[in-house]
């Protein structure tokens, strides 16, 4: 065999061995640590209208929820050491135009001051999860907060960037409906994926967004509301993504890969045979 031919065979073999080796070696890596709970909300792609005003729509029961643990708000005063709502189950759907997010959580009593909120980072700048509070070494961005309160019976679309800056937006484009039954609140928020408002989170299918949640138990204890203002149950930042439409072109690339690999084998064998004959 000539050197050139040897080299070609060697190259082919190296590619094969490294390919198989890499598959075996990398497949044995353990999964990332600490992923016991959910890390992301997935907005499933559906056809037709999203269940925008119906917390009990049948479609919700077909969706696997993400679940996030909640903590008392301790970041700034007034703090709270214990909260009623300990965790939240989150489900989401979108149809390419509109989205709906269902929050389901346990709260033993239905009260006028019960409230729930969803918070998003807006734009490219990272924002602190506590109302986009000022960071000392990083320039932060705005947060967009969707707030629902039982006694208001609707959602308020708000913006914040730091302490005491939270304010309702001029363009209100979020709606919310809550239903309490047997110690469980189901609150559905809905909005178009895109609003054209710079103060709103813009949800693009396939792209990740940062999301956080907050809840207030409005029960009256000793003449006062139990949880209000900064006294609330909060989550950290997690992720949300609207499912992109299926991309079938990927199967074309898979077939192309198989054809190329088979062709490579064919020419490799032919080359060696010719080398042996000569």
């Amino acid at each position: 065999m000539g050197y050139m031919k040897i080299f070609n065979v060697a190259l082919g073999l190296t590619l094969m061995v490294t390919g198989v080796g890499a598959s075996c070696v990398f497949a044995s890596d353990p999964p990332p640590e600490g992923e016991t709970g959910s890390v992301a909300v997935r907005l499933f792609l559906t056809e037709g209208a999203v269940p925008a005003d119906d917390p009990n729509a049948a479609v919700w029961n077909t969706i696997e929820p993400a679940e996030f643990k909640l903590a008392p708000q301790v970041h700034w005063p007034d703090r709270i050491q214990e909260v009623t709502v300990k965790s939240v189950k989150v489900r989401g759907v979108h149809n390419g135009e509109d989205m709906a997010i269902l929050l389901e959580y346990a709260d033993p009593s239905e009260d006028a001051a019960d409230a729930a909120a969803v918070e998003f980072m807006v734009g490219d700048k990272m924002a602190h999860f506590a109302h986009g509070q000022e960071m000392l070494q990083v320039e932060g961005g705005d947060v967009n907060i969707w707030y629902w309160k039982k006694e208001h019976g609707k959602a308020t679309d708000m913006t914040a960037k730091g302490f005491k800056t939270i304010r309702p937006q001029e363009n209100q484009n979020v709606s919310a409906t809550g239903a309490w039954q047997d110690g469980t609140w189901r609150v559905v928020f809905s909005r178009p994926l895109q609003t054209g408002d710079d103060l709103d989170v813009q949800v693009t299918p396939g792209e990740w967004r940062n999301v956080a949640f907050a809840f207030w138990d409005g029960e009256i204890v000793d003449g006062d509301v139990k949880e209000k203002g900064s006294q609330k149950a909060v989550s950290s930042w997690w992720y949300l993504r609207a499912e992109p439409p299926p991309d079938n072109s990927i199967y074309g690339y898979v077939v192309l890969g198989i054809v190329l690999a088979a062709g490579f084998e064919f020419f490799l064998v032919r080359k060696i045979r010719r080398g042996n004959e000569s």
Partner: peptide, 21 residues
């Protein structure tokens, strides 16, 4: 070998449900 290449192509291109690391 061609099936492995096809599988590798699929796993590289398939949309991931995992958020950014």
């Amino acid at each position: 070998f061609p099936l492995l290449v096809g599988w590798q192509t699929y796993t590289r291109l398939a949309p991931s449900d995992m958020p950014p690391a």
